[in-house]
Amino acid sequence: MSIDAFIMGIAFIMIHLLANDLIPSGRIQRLKWFSFSGGLAVSYVFVYVLPTLHKEQILVKKYGNYFTMESELYFIGLLGVLIFYGIQKVVRKEQRSGNPKKARALFWLQIKFFGFYNMLVAYTILSHNVSGIQAVFYGIAVGLHFVAVAHDLWREDADIYNKHGRYVLALGIVVGWITGMTISLSPLIESMIFAFISGAMILNVLKYELPPDDEAHFPTFAIGVVAYTTLTMSMKFFFQW
C-alpha cells in the first residue's frame, strides 16, 4: 500500500467517525457548506468518473470476446443506480409506514450496503494506484462525498448511526484495504467493480448531495464546480492524468 492510499484511507475512516462534527451547526453556514460540497461532487462526476468509465469501457475489449458492444460497463453502472435507488426507496417507504421495527431493520440493511460500497471504493483506490497530487484532488472529492452520505444516514436514524452505523461504514474502508493488499483480481473484474460503484456514486451525488432549491446557495455551488473543474482539468493537462 502506498503512503498516499494509506493517508486517504485514514482520512475516510475519520470522516465516517466524525462526519457530523465537521458540518457547521449554523443554518446558513451549513447550506453553504453542502452547496460547495455538492459543487465539488458534481464536478468530480463529470471530470473524473464519467471519463474514467469511458476509458474502462474501451479497455475491456482487450480482455477477450466477452464484450461485443460499447456499453456493457455502462449497463453495470446502471445496475449500481438501480440497486442503490431500490434499497433507499424501500427504506424511506418503511420509515413513513409507521412500523418502526421494520424500518430500523431495513435501515440496518442500508448501513450494511453502504459498508459494502465503502469496501469497493477503498479497493478501487488501491487497484488504480492513485497517488501524489492526483490522490489529493480525488481524495477531497470522495471524502466530501462520504461526509454527505454519512450525514444523510445520520438524519434518517441518528441513534443507530452514532452507536453502530458509522463503525460499520469505517470497517468497510478497512476491509477494502485488506482486500486490495491481499487479493489480486483480473483487470476485467476491477473494471466491473469501478462501473458498479460509479453508478451508485452518480446516483448519490445527483439525488442526495445536491441541495434542494430552497436550501441551496447557488453562488457557493458554482464556486465549487468552477474551482474544482478548473484545478482538475489543469492538472490533467500538465500531468497527463
Rank of each mutant, 00 (worst) to 15 (best):
A11T: 02
I160P: 00
F6I: 05
D21F: 14
N99D: 08
M69Y: 14
M14Y: 11
H128G: 05
Y208M: 11
V168N: 10
L31F: 13
F46Q: 05
F84M: 09
V174Q: 10
I140C: 05
V147H: 03
V121T: 11
F36D: 01
H164M: 12
I183K: 13
G172T: 07
I223E: 03
S198R: 00
D21W: 13
L144I: 12
K112I: 14
K207R: 10
K102T: 09
S131G: 04
K55F: 08
T124R: 12
I15W: 12
R92D: 06
Y63A: 13
F146P: 02
A19H: 04
N118W: 07
G64L: 09
N118A: 13
D21C: 07
M235F: 15
R166A: 05
G176F: 12
V47Y: 05
F238P: 03
G26E: 15
M119R: 11
F221S: 04
S191P: 00
V168G: 07
S191L: 01
L50F: 11
A11G: 03
E94P: 00
L185S: 13
V42E: 01
L169F: 09
I160R: 07
L18G: 06
G39F: 02
F239N: 09
V168L: 15
S234W: 15
I173H: 06
R104H: 05
D4T: 02
L17P: 00
V91R: 05
S35P: 01
T229N: 07
M181D: 13
F67G: 00
F114I: 10
I197P: 00
Q240P: 00
V42S: 00
N20Q: 14
V49H: 07
G176T: 09
I140P: 02
K55V: 05
R92K: 12
L106F: 15
V136W: 07
E215R: 14
G86A: 12
V175T: 13
M233V: 11
F137M: 11
I58D: 08
I178P: 05
M69C: 03
S35T: 02
F146A: 08
E94Y: 06
K32V: 01
F116D: 05
I160S: 11
Q240H: 15
M1Y: 08
V130S: 03
G38C: 01
L171K: 09
D214W: 11
I23L: 07
E156P: 01
L126N: 10
S127H: 06
L18I: 03
H151N: 14
D213H: 10
I7W: 07
F218L: 14
V121E: 10
F238R: 12
Y117W: 03
M201N: 02
N20H: 12
E94F: 08
F34N: 06
K163M: 08
V147L: 08
L188P: 04
N65H: 15
F237V: 06
G199L: 01
L31P: 00
S186W: 11
W177R: 05
F36V: 04
N20R: 14
N204I: 01
S198E: 01
A158M: 04
F137W: 08
V142G: 02
I202Q: 04
H217V: 15
I13L: 02
M119W: 08
